[in-house]
Design a protein around this nucleic acid. Structure first.
Length: 364
DNA sequence: AATACGGGGCA
DNA sequence: TGCCCAGTATT
């Protein structure tokens, strides 16, 4: 019956159907058997707002490089960011590193077992804490994330905005009711697999083991539940990455905490007006002036390349300028270093930064 | 309550 | 292209 969503009878039948479906159709994820708290933690952080396909190679490399929480704590933040490079949301990597230090120094490397305690770690919110507690420590902790949010919303026939406080409250309350005392981690995994493969954005209801438990299915509103959120408008940015060379070295800055890519290294970026390009003398004059304002006299050589890159709600139209140093020191505010070109691979760069670095080696 | 934070996968 | 992704922290 669907009229009794959440009652104990409903929950019992729901759990049975989900478990059975999972035995037959659950995803074969590479970490399926790995319940070690450290690796659960690392992968849950990586999976925040990031697809499984994107995470797999990064997780393998990360655990290879930092196999234990101690090794992670002992590493430099830059080394951690270097392994994270290209995965995005870099504050995750920095929080991971900080949290490793906390675990080692304050807790002597021993994990707290409860979700509440785990949630004290930086970068760990309610979902991630529950995931770790249920996967690694068999705590019956409820989860709500992208996959389960869709699933629960539809089961409940929830027409409220799931992002709002009242929607969130209903979803977490539902999660608390369905998570079972026995093997809660496996059950949570089953819920996510069901959400990911069947209760997708465009749901495959004919394959769903719990469609008769689903209010949205019964009402024929699965395509409108959960309510979609409208996206933020994209802002176009036109920027120039300035590659300043001085006898085999290139000037790199460490992006500050306030702006984009905090903690990553990169090239000085200046903005252009829309339509300005490096084949225009006025653009080049602007470039020279902008760099002089940051302490460095340069001579423009040529354009290195150009491409488009999306970062959160911005789309950056990037051109790179190959220039040579004439005089002066960087006083643009950021930490700066002259780095031999063949050592760029050792620094953590953003994706556009890495692209520009490739152009330096092999001009496009 | 709204916004910032990245980048890739896929139709 | 546009939508979506095992969210969290900050304003």
């Amino acid at each position: 019956m669907t009229s009794d969503v959440g009652t104990s009878q409903w929950v019992a039948a729901f759990r049975r159907r989900v478990r059975r479906w999972y035995r037959l159709h659950g995803r074969e994820l590479p970490w399926k058997e790995d319940a070690d708290p450290y690796s659960v933690w690392v992968r849950e952080i990586m999976l925040q707002q990031t697809t499984v396909a994107a995470v797999v190679p990064y997780l393998e490399k990360f655990l290879d490089e930092f196999p234990t929480v101690t090794s992670l704590a002992q590493a430099s933040e830059e080394a951690v960011l270097r392994v994270w490079e290209g995965l995005g949301y870099y504050s995750r990597a920095r929080n991971l590193h900080r949290a490793a230090t906390m675990i080692v120094e304050e807790w002597e490397g021993v994990w707290p077992r409860s979700a509440d305690a785990i949630e004290c770690l930086p970068g760990v919110g309610r979902y991630t804490a529950s995931a770790i507690a249920s996967f690694a420590f068999d705590e019956a902790a409820p989860i709500v994330e992208a996959n389960t949010l869709r699933l629960y919303s539809r089961l409940l026939g929830m027409v409220d905005d799931p992002a709002r406080a009242s929607g969130q409250k209903q979803l977490w309350a539902f999660a608390e009711r369905v998570v079972p005392p026995a093997r809660p981690g496996q059950f949570n995994q089953a819920l996510m697999d069901l959400g990911a493969t069947v209760c997708r954005s465009e749901p495959l209801c004919e394959e769903c083991p719990v469609r008769l438990n689903c209010q949205a299915f019964r009402l024929g509103i699965t395509s409108r539940v959960p309510m979609r959120r409208r996206r933020a408008r994209i802002t176009e940015l036109h920027e120039t990455a300035v590659v300043i060379k001085r006898s085999g070295d290139v000037l790199m800055i460490r992006y500050s905490e306030e702006g984009r890519w905090p903690g990553l290294w990169g090239f000085p970026l200046i903005s252009r007006a829309r339509g300005e390009t490096l084949d225009q003398p006025t653009t080049i004059l602007d470039l020279v002036r902008e760099m002089r304002a940051r302490g460095i006299d340069i001579e423009f050589c040529r354009q290195l390349g150009e491409f488009r890159h999306g970062v959160t709600r911005f789309r950056i139209h990037l051109q790179a300028a190959d220039v040579s140093w004439v005089d002066g020191e960087w006083n643009g505010g950021e930490r700066a270093e002259w780095i031999p070109i063949d050592e760029l691979s050792r620094r953590p760069l953003s994706v556009p930064g890495r692209q520009v670095a490739q152009w330096i080696r092999k001009p496009a």
